Simulated assay, not measured.
Amino acid sequence: MKFSTRRLGTNGPFVSAIGLGCMGMSEFYGHADRATSLATIAAALDAGVTLFDTGDFYGVGHNEMLLAEALRGKREQAFIQVKFGAQRGPDGAFLGIDARPVAVKTALAYSLRRLETDYVDLYMTGVDPAVPIEDTIGAMAELVTQGYIQHIGLTNVDAATIRRAHATHPITALQFEYGLISRDMEEEILPLCRELGIGITAYGVLSRGLLTGSKGSGEGDLRSAYYPRFQGDNRTRNERLAAALARVAQEEGITAAQAAIGWVLSQGEDIIPVVGSRTPERLAEALASPLKLSDASLTAIETAVPHDAVAGERFMAH
């Protein structure tokens, strides 16, 4: 099945207009059933989704192995983007970032084994305060030359870092949180990416379920622990935004999730939302989102959910 495609950056490959984020299939959002996760990835492939997002630290390797299992015999149908650098302890604690050149190559070696593949389509780094970005990108460039990665990406970095990285080796894509109530990148980062021809893979499109009424609680669900927007009075106030979005979406004949995803899709052909659907049903809903909303619909949605109305920061201070 052919799903609508978009080009990842000015000179990058064409990928599905919506990608599947696999993180929640391993941890953070509560229990995920393995069979259901595999069925969701299979449904994505059948629907024509090609972009799959993972990280070597999601489930401490579990997510890559799950994706590899789902893609056996179908690797060439998938464009896999992998984030690396975050260090984890045996108890799951986050210990910092390691993006030294030797760590870049070691991390990729393990990812290739877990993913059961000879190459990664897009390898993405954040910032290691102890390592110049030029050193990290330089090591990644070597891996491009050797054929182990096809494209270099960045995640959650500032504009100055993007410029320095791009001057070292062309950057194909930036992954950044972007959605109705997370619009920080519009001021400086999005214009810069467009200037340099860098595509955007947007995560947090539903604000981790906040915009669809998720409580962020329950066994194994860490959203209320890590994200202030799911805590106390913040959650109460943000639930009103979710309710307002649901009302507007109903008037438009779509769901709240489709309104939020459609809003991101409507912001430009260079933006590819990555949705964290964990069941085939939620995936089907996401993939039915409108690729381009009318100006009137966009205005109605933005009036219901003003970007400055959200309560709480995106992350805990630490």
Rank of each mutant, 00 (worst) to 15 (best):
V60Y: 02
F79M: 14
P132L: 05
Y178G: 07
E269F: 03
R164Q: 08
V104W: 02
T201K: 03
S207C: 11
I80R: 00
E285T: 03
V157E: 14
N234R: 03
C193D: 11
V310P: 07
G59V: 07
Y123M: 00
A44Q: 03
G19H: 11
G153K: 05
S277Q: 12
R7F: 10
A17E: 14
Q77S: 14
E27S: 09
S224Q: 11
D46R: 06
T36Y: 02
L115N: 10
L143G: 00
L291A: 14
F79N: 09
A47Y: 04
P101S: 01
P273G: 12
G216L: 08
G213A: 10
A139N: 07
A78P: 05
A103C: 04
V104A: 02
K2I: 15
S217I: 13
V305A: 02
N234M: 05
N238M: 13
G96C: 04
A173E: 07
T36K: 04
A32K: 04
A173V: 15
A35S: 08
I271S: 08
G179Y: 00
T299R: 06
A93V: 03
H62C: 05
V120M: 00
V264S: 03
E219Y: 06
M316I: 14
A165N: 05
S37C: 05
G218C: 03
Q87T: 13
V82F: 01
V248E: 15
I152E: 00
R7M: 08
G232L: 07
F79C: 14
A39P: 03
V248T: 15
A244F: 02
R282K: 11
L45C: 02
A311P: 10
D135S: 07
I97H: 07
F315T: 12
T106E: 15
L206P: 08
F14Y: 12
A70V: 13
T279E: 13
M140A: 05
I171C: 01
I254E: 11
P306W: 10
I189Q: 10
R223E: 12
R247E: 15
E188P: 02
E134P: 02
H307I: 09
G312A: 09
K2S: 15
Q250L: 11
D158S: 10
G220L: 00
L241E: 13
A165W: 00
A167D: 07
L71E: 12
G268P: 08
